[in-house]
Design a binder for these strands. Structure first.
Length: 546
RNA sequence: GCGCCCAUAGCUCAAUUGGAUAGAGCGUUUGACUACGAAUCAAAAGGUUAGAGGUUCAACUCCUCUUGGGCGCGCCA
């Protein structure tokens, strides 16, 4: 992880220094952007780590290191000092800031793209809602996180494939077909009861009504197929409205129904394989996965006594299939209610010869919808849940995505519909979008060529703070990668907006001295690039006018 | 009962995975539009990080216990 090009050299220098102190192994220290309350551009904890190894005072080590660093990095580091328990705080030279600012201006939307690294193939599997009903608000959170994380990883140079796993086989599809059929007959006037465990949502009635309107004959309708394709169609439409597009739709039938030359499905084969390997065993007429071998609470059934496979069996086969497609890392986004499932699937992939690290399951906590402070009920049982589409139609895609990406997946999210709709400062999405609108309203009237600007004229605190924030964009994306969460980017954009608005207040652009005006125009262009790219990675638009 | 996640300012949440004086937004109070968009800015108040122990040079972060919340615990998907 390198955010600035001199970092590698810095690490070498420090490691050589450590060697001179008699430390042979590579030491692991961080080069980081310090917390806000610290007045520094970069911080190193290397002195503390070296001091511990050679059992001496970190401040002595730090003093020696500072001397070396200030000499060797005079072009980038203006000054360095010891702080706290032995941190070394670094300050950039103005030349370095200008150079980085130029990098943003020349690379434009490709800024912070990593080249010739991270060629690994990564799969991000998310949403994967059963095609038995429309997407609800919870799927929306998973969709936003998965899509945005994918965009960020792609920007960082990974080869990312976004996949939707479609559970389109099994009993649930039969129930779906029967549900529609029953509704159809009821609408035709038959006095029959609805299925006990059928799908009770209004959308089933709508499908039945559509089928009636289309005038098809009852005997000729394949209710299962019709329901499935129509629901899938609405799911795809909702995702499109949400600006989420998948690279791959993977159907469960491929591994659970399709047969190879021996008449076996992929599920058959993987179960056979695990059995031969000794990781699965027969007991009480069922086939069990010995998941306790890898830390699960209990062993799990793969094939029932009646011969039918469980959902787990397909999922094991599905994951085997993923690795056969040569994904170095697989990321799954699951709702937190699936957490009990993590241990068994982790066990399974290890049985299949993968390292634990090859699978990362991100659990996102559920969303609670609030309107005017009052909770909005959403129970799938009664069929009355809030669909993603309802929310999108009400608050719009931008606000919806931004709100979903505001928090770490681990924390429960309160989503206030009224707040998301507000076009005021209470609403952070407008606060960030407003930055670009302000930039563009100045830039649109500026006709001169600013590319020759002398950036050293950007000398006020506000301007320097803004440049420093802009050049930490790359670091922010790397943190998102490391923590596998886009919310750091959302926070970054809000902070950047804050610093920009402060700059805007203090520093006039148009009508200043011609040269200063030019330099500030360049700064505005850079701001606009970062805000636009950053919002795009969240899947949020950055309009020029609002 | 067992397991997973969580508990941070009045409210909603951050804190770069063990670092420094725990930060934002909203809300509250007080100010700023005859200059590029006031959808903005400046300032103030607000904290024993649920509680108690422990590990460490260093703990919101790791370990143990307690309290309080969410979610799981099927040969369902």
């Amino acid at each position: 992880m390198l955010k600035f090009n001199f970092e590698e050299q810095l690490k070498n220098t420090i490691n050589n220094f450590a060697k001179s102190k008699g430390i042979e192994e590579q030491i692991s220290f961080v080069v980081e952007i310090p917390p806000k309350n610290i007045n520094a551009d970069l911080a190193l904890n290397a002195a503390m780590i070296i001091a511990k190894k050679v059992r001496t005072n970190p401040r002595i080590i730090a003093t020696e290191l500072i001397e070396i660093i200030s000499k060797e990095f005079a072009n980038t580091i203006k000054s360095a000092e010891i702080a706290g328990a032995g941190f070394i705080n670094l300050h950039f030279t103005d030349e370095f800031l200008q150079q980085e600012l130029n990098k943003i201006l020349s690379k434009k939307q490709d800024y912070a793209k990593q080249e010739n690294v991270n060629k690994d193939k990564i799969m991000v599997e998310f949403v994967s809602a059963n095609p038995t009903g429309p997407l609800h608000i919870g799927h929306g959170r998973g969709a936003a996180i998965g899509d945005s994380l994918s965009r960020i990883l792609k920007h960082l140079g990974y080869n990312v494939v976004k996949e939707y796993y479609l559970n389109d086989v099994g009993n649930q599809m039969n129930v779906l077909g029967e549900s529609t059929k029953t509704r159809y007959r009821q609408l035709k006037g038959e006095d029959i009861p609805f299925l006990e465990d059928g799908y009770k949502g209004e959308y089933i009635k709508d499908i039945a009504q559509d089928l009636i309107n289309e005038g098809k004959k009852f005997e000729e309708i394949d209710f299962k197929k019709e329901s499935h394709t129509r629901i899938l169609e609405t799911i795809k439409k909702d995702l499109e409205q949400f600006r989420v597009n998948f690279d791959s739709w993977f159907s469960e039938s491929k591994i659970a129904s399709d047969k190879d030359e021996n008449g076996k499905t992929q599920v058959d084969n993987v179960c056979q394989y695990l059995k031969e390997k000794g990781d699965a065993f027969e007991q009480d007429g069922a086939l069990w996965l010995k998941s306790t071998l890898y830390g699960d609470d209990k062993d799990r059934v793969l094939r029932r006594t009646d011969g039918r496979y469980t959902y787990l069996a397909s999922d094991v086969a599905y994951h085997k299939n993923k690795y056969e497609r040569e994904f170095a890392q697989v990321i799954n986004l699951w709702g937190a209610d699936h957490h009990g499932y993590v241990a068994r699937i982790m066990a399974a992939i290890q049985m299949l010869g993968q390292k634990k690290e090859a699978l990362k399951v991100i659990l996102y906590q559920l969303v609670s919808l609030v309107r005017n402070g009052q909770p909005v009920a959403m129970s799938t049982r009664s069929g009355e849940f809030i669909t993603l589409k309802d929310v999108l139609d009400e608050v719009g895609t931008d606000a919806c995505r931004f709100f979903f990406l505001l928090r770490a997946p681990d924390s429960q999210l309160e989503f206030d519909l009224e707040l998301a709709k507000k076009q005021t400062s209470e609403n952070p999405v407008f606060y960030v979008q407003y930055v670009n609108a302000r930039c563009q309203s100045i830039l649109k009237d500026y006709k001169e060529d600013s590319s020759t600007a002398n950036l050293s004229l950007l000398s006020t605190k506000e301007e320097k703070d803004l440049i420093k924030k802009l050049i930490s964009f790359e670091d922010t994306l790397l943190i998102c990668d490391k923590t596998k969460s886009p919310h750091h980017l959302t926070t970054y954009l809000i902070e950047t907006a804050d610093i920009y608005h402060r700059f805007y207040e203090k520093c006039r652009v148009l009508g200043e001295d011609k040269e200063l005006e030019k330099a500030r125009i360049q700064l505005l262009k850079a701001v606009s690039i970062i805000i636009t790219v950053g919002l795009d990675l969240l899947g949020v638009s950055a309009p020029n006018k609002m």
